[in-house]
């Protein structure tokens, strides 16, 4: 992965540089917001780890500038706890994920991988995570090379959830997706589809959790 870390705290950035390099990633450091923004105009990265409190130009403005010129590079925002309401703003201006300082290194590494994976999956039409593979074009899912033999509706649901990782989807929202206008939507049928899909995905890194009374959340288990 080619990573740009924009962070003005030396202690934190040194630790991050060391750990990411230790894992074999190429990581560059910028400590100034405006300089980072200038760099991002010319160089491309797989993921940007962006602090909010930066000298000369804050993280939001950097992010806004990126999105304004159509740069869709995944961005992970770092925020301090005191900026708690900044999270919402960060996501609103187009951050893909955020982490609150202080954080666990393994966590940030996993999040970065997930972001890169998601973006590459969107680009290639094939979502790969470990032994799991989902081919959008062929509309099939493989686990360790074995076709999971998903039904048409299960494919639709899986595609929906992989596109909305980490987001709560209500039963109604799922139903809207898998039923056409002509069919009478049945929440029971949704539940049955979910149960079957979850069973077929058992053992894969893709987990769809049920939040009773609310809906479902899909997430990817790392490793």
């Amino acid at each position: 992965m080619r990573i740009l870390l924009v962070e003005d705290s030396r202690d934190l950035s040194e630790a991050l540089l060391e750990r990411f390099r230790g894992e074999g990633h190429a990581i560059d450091l910028e400590t100034d917001g405006a300089e980072a923004e200038a760099l991002l105009r010319h160089a491309s990265f797989d993921v940007v780890i962006l602090d909010i409190n930066l000298p000369s130009m804050n993280g939001y403005d950097v992010l806004r500038a990126m999105r304004a010129r159509g740069d869709r590079t995944p961005v992970l925002v770092l925020t301090a706890r005191s900026e708690i309401d900044d999270r919402i703003v960060g996501l609103d201006v187009g951050a893909d994920d955020y982490m609150v300082k202080p954080f666990d290194f393994r966590e940030i590494s996993a999040r970065c991988r997930a972001l890169v994976r998601r973006r590459s999956g969107e680009a290639s039409n094939v979502f790969v995570q470990g032994a799991f593979e989902f081919d959008r074009g062929a509309r099939r899912a493989l686990l360790a090379g074995v076709d999971l033999e998903l039904r048409h509706r299960e494919v639709q649901v899986l595609e929906l959830f992989l596109g909305q990782l980490g987001r709560v989807l209500t039963k109604d929202e799922v139903a809207d997706r898998i039923y056409s206008f002509d069919e009478a939507p049945s929440l029971n049928a949704v539940e049955q589809t979910m149960t079957r899909l979850r069973k077929k995905l058992d053992g894969s890194p893709v987990a769809i959790r049920t939040i009773r009374g609310l809906g479902y959340i899909a997430s990817i288990r790392d490793d």
């Binding site: 980490g166 987990a207 959790r209 939040i211 009773r212 009374g213 609310l214 959340i217 997430s219």
Partner: peptide, 14 residues
Amino acid sequence: VRDERAGGIDFAVE
């Protein structure tokens, strides 16, 4: 859900 890693907890919303 994102922060809760173990995943053994059954969440419900009313």
